[in-house]
């Protein structure tokens, strides 16, 4: 099948029940294209033929007929698909400057949350998505030549405690099955909201770059940072800043010019939602 995900058409070939179930649930609202359409990304998941097949079944991920990654336990086929697809995009889609960031939109303006360890980006992103923000992406800020951001809504992977946090914070959130003991601990995915998927062809203008930092029980503080600081942090956090060369420098520069930039530390999701709401409602 050829699945439309944001700007990409993804050909998925797999006969693995767990994956089919996952896809039909988490990608329910996404468009399916006819099988003879041109696919940008071509992946296949399959069970390798080996003696393990019978008592410790595994699954492999292949792009264009070439295996990437080591095999995963068969039951982890869905997270393998998600990571694999990220990898396929990050290694090839150099028409974009690809920021490693969550991106959300409100009123046509985009909020960029660059990922750094301990930022709680995915949790924050899932929370905002359930409080009136449209999800552009949890993983990729796809910056076009004209500085607009293209959406790439996908299921948001939550890790460990975050799963319970989001279940409590947004009971309406639709979560997929939990995958215990992946290399990132237990993972469960949040389905993107209907509006995020319906509007996935609508790009947004970058407006705010916020570097989040989660600190248990901390007061929420939003603090402006100098452009130079934001530039370096954003550039070093991109997937393909170096690949783009001078064009990468120009794109980050334009982005910095067009946005306001902040450091943000927080301890409670409610505070974060409130602060971002006031950011969005101010002109």
């Amino acid at each position: 099948m050829v699945l439309g995900v944001g700007p990409f058409q993804v050909r998925i070939r797999a006969r693995i029940a767990a994956l089919t179930g996952f896809l039909s649930r988490m990608y329910r609202d996404f468009p399916l294209h006819p099988p003879d359409s041109f696919a940008d990304v071509r992946v296949r998941l399959y069970r390798p033929r080996s003696w393990r097949r019978y008592f410790q079944p595994q699954v492999c991920f292949e792009r264009d007929g070439k295996r990437i990654f080591h095999p995963f336990p068969l039951s982890h086929a869905p997270p393998l698909f998600e990571w694999g697809l990220n990898w396929c995009i990050a290694t090839r889609a150099h028409q974009y400057l690809m920021l490693h960031a969550a991106v959300l939109e409100r009123g046509g303006r985009a909020l960029i949350l660059p990922a750094t360890p301990g930022s709680g980006k995915s949790t924050l992103c899932a929370a905002l998505m359930h409080r009136g923000w449209r999800l552009l992406s949890d993983e990729f800020g796809l910056v076009r030549e004209d500085s607009r951001l293209d959406p790439l809504p996908r299921p948001i992977p939550l890790k460990n405690e975050s799963i319970g946090v989001i279940r409590a914070f947004a009971p309406e959130a639709e979560l997929g099955p939990e995958f215990p003991k992946t290399r990132k601990g237990t993972v469960a995915h949040v389905k993107p909201t209907g509006a995020s998927v319906r509007r996935m062809e609508e790009s947004a203008v970058p407006a705010w770059i916020v570097f989040p930092r989660f600190q248990r029980d901390a007061r929420a503080v939003l603090e402006p940072v100098p452009a130079s600081y934001a530039f370096l942090r954003l550039a070093y956090n991109a997937f393909n800043y170096e690949v783009l060369g001078a064009e990468g420098f120009r794109r980050v520069g334009r982005l910095i010019h067009r946005c306001r930039h902040f450091n943000f530390s927080y301890g409670r999701l409610e505070d974060a939602v409130e602060i971002f709401d006031s950011l969005a409602s101010a002109s």
């Binding site: 940008d40 090839r92 150099h94 028409q95 064009e247």
Partner: peptide, 15 residues
């Protein structure tokens, strides 16, 4: 869609 693939590959080759 096709053109973008070639262009992306050319960007990577320059890199």
């Amino acid at each position: 869609r096709v053109r973008r693939h070639f262009e992306a590959a050319m960007i990577e080759a320059r890199f």
